[in-house]
Design a protein around this nucleic acid. Structure first.
Lengths: 220, 220
DNA sequence: TCAATAGTGTCTCTTAGACAATATTGA
DNA sequence: TCAATATTGTCTAAGAGACACTATTGA
């Protein structure tokens, strides 16, 4: 029924969906039910359907729709993998994206009955992933880290309201290294991306923490 | 004869081939002979041929083979454009690369009889380009500039042997802004990428200029 | 009072930009 | 000598890392 990939490449869109849990960057993996590479964990993906998708982002959103019950606030292209060897079925093309899910919506991941889904450590996903998804994940992580290193704030990983310490923990989870509190706050002070929520604090058995939110028009 | 793009997207690889001439960054354009967008200038590209190309880079090299008579020393992926609206024929995917051609090989561009080819100013290519190639060119230029801003040295744009002033002029051409000579040379001094060619100088009616070359294993 | 976390201040070192000074050639 | 370009030096300001300090709460 399907066209031979020798004549026409198999086109799909893959996505590394990141979130933060327990101060650790996690990525969503799906266990493949069918051959090839059955039973192996892989990044979620979908085969392009030209009659249904208006563009590549639509393909990605469709790939995530049955796995996550909320809309994804941030989607960004990483790169494209293509060749005759990366999939045993023949010539294939995979356009890779990464996406960010706020950590207060991690529970919105759908536990399907037909498909196993799990969160894995983004920098050490465990056993070898299907196809070239290990490389894909590493590349996606690299792009995300490079952006945060360049002082972009991954606010899409946080709830709408957050404290500066939470933001710092999130950046540390992405980068995989500790950041200096003073230096971190120094640049937040001149950042255009943050906004104090007046009179809103998180209380507890310590000094209350000011709540912040993303400025309107914030773009990661 | 051809498959309908409604069922299968048209897949091509496009390339922005950059070179420097007269201290200005140039990009290679091709005038389209056929519809759609006939007569309009476009980036060189080729339709993917799964039976001939082992991967996407092979497609790009094939696209350039009949336009440039030398091998391209550097090729890098920019991003992928896909959707049902970017080509009037229907769903299409274009994987964009950029490539660097040493300025002493600009004359290696083949002036084909069937196809008009020209070098154009990379930041102001003139009239509107075909399809979304204006955006593609801007994106490719942006990726290249970002890399040079991060202190990568675009040595592939230079001849094998070059002076520091030539290197500075090349970086200025890429970035479109003047650089400070002292600061520029300061970071070259600690760079791992350059190597003095002993006792080799460019002479003239002024102080001789030391010749340099890329270190073995240099990667842009 | 103490524990715990929020938030600030200060020092030093590195680096980049601006710009001046010196060096070396051919004519 | 001079013009022209190569090469180096110096000053200053901004920014980052390290680290210590102060602030404010509940228990």
């Amino acid at each position: 029924m399907s066209t031979s990939p020798t004549l026409f490449p198999l086109i799909s869109a893959d996505v590394a969906l990141f979130s933060v849990e327990q101060d650790s960057l996690q990525v969503l993996l799906v266990r493949r039910a069918q051959e090839p590479e059955a039973q192996r964990w892989a990044l979620p993906g979908a085969v392009l359907k030209p009659d249904r998708d208006t563009d590549l982002e639509a393909t990605v959103r469709r790939a995530l729709r049955d796995k996550v019950s909320v809309e994804i606030p941030h989607l960004e292209q990483v790169r494209t993998y293509g060749g005759q060897d990366r999939d045993p079925r023949g010539w294939s093309i995979a356009v890779l994206f990464y996406a960010l899910l706020p950590r207060d919506q991690v529970q919105a991941v759908v536990r399907s009955k037909v498909e196993a889904v799990k969160w894995a450590d983004a920098s050490k996903p465990g056993a070898r992933l299907a196809f070239d998804h290990g490389v894909q994940l590493a590349d996606a992580l690299g792009v995300l880290q490079a952006k945060v290193e360049r002082y972009a704030l991954p606010l899409h990983l946080l709830p709408e309201r957050f404290t500066l310490t939470e933001l710092q923990r999130t950046c540390e989870a992405v980068l995989g290294r500790p950041l200096d509190k003073s230096a971190f706050r120094r640049r937040l002070k001149v950042s255009e991306d943050l906004e104090v929520i007046p009179d809103e604090f998180v209380v507890g058995p310590q000094r209350p923490a000011q709540l912040y939110r993303a400025r309107v028009g914030f773009q990661f």
